[in-house]
């Protein structure tokens, strides 16, 4: 996991600079926002639409951050926070990796330790590698000649790949991609991505193509 996180961090730093952010802005995102998917989305939309797409870039980053709220609800009884500042720290470190490691442990002490250790290690590694990536991106200059725009698409594909496990998620991914591509020529940059989010809301609420969960099946 350490190597994977480092790779994401370097990619993010380089892509952020390619999107027009400076090294400081790339580092501030990793220090404060600290949630990879949202950070990639923000710089991805800024790369296509510039500052004019700022509103939709912020909205997309926030929508991708919704899952962290869901993780927080699951992690609240796990992290053993006894004061408000520990709760705030736990919230800050609540990401895909810390949640996944915590939930993989059996007993409460191991879960708590898994959450905090993973969160802190990933935080340090993510910020260090973001800086390295941003400095590399700064050195490269013309990023298209180095294929960095294609690298961005490949990085997004890497983020989504482990999630494509059911017919429902694959169908949503395909439909969202088609919606976003079809709307690109007709609406302002950034909007196609937001419109594609409606596919998730539609399928999520109706459970189209999905299996009924045990909870829903019981009367």
């Amino acid at each position: 996991m350490g190597v994977a996180t480092a790779a994401y961090g370097v990619s993010f730093g380089a892509l952020a600079v390619a999107a027009g952010l400076d090294v400081w802005q790339a580092c501030v995102l990793s220090l404060f926002m600290f949630t990879g998917g949202s950070q990639f989305a923000l710089v991805g939309i800024l790369a296509s639409g510039g500052v004019a797409a700022g509103g939709t870039a912020i909205a997309s980053a926030a929508l991708l951050g919704v899952r962290n709220a869901a993780y927080g609800m699951r992690m609240k009884p796990v992290v053993g926070a006894t004061s408000w500042w520990k709760t705030a720290g736990a919230a800050w470190l609540t990401i895909d990796e810390s949640t996944a490691v915590a939930l993989a442990q059996e007993d409460p002490a191991a879960r708590r330790r898994g959450f905090w250790v993973t969160g802190i290690v990933v935080y340090l590694g993510w910020n260090l590698t973001t800086l390295v990536g941003a400095l590399i991106g700064d050195l490269l200059g013309d990023t298209r000649a180095y294929g960095l725009d294609a690298a961005a698409a490949a990085a997004f594909l890497g983020l989504i790949w482990p999630r494509l496990k059911s017919h429902q998620t694959i169908a949503v991914a395909c439909a969202a991609a088609v919606v976003a591509a079809a709307l690109t020529p007709v609406v302002a940059p950034g909007m196609p991505v937001l419109a594609a989010a409606l596919v998730a809301v539609l399928v999520g609420t109706t459970n189209l193509l999905g299996r009924r969960t045990a909870r829903e099946a019981t009367p």
């Binding site: 991805g44 939309i45 991708l64 969202a176 088609v178 591509a181 991505v193």
Partner: peptide, 11 residues
Amino acid sequence: VALLAALIAVQ
């Protein structure tokens, strides 16, 4: 999933 897929298409 939807947001990442849309970003792939646009990117």
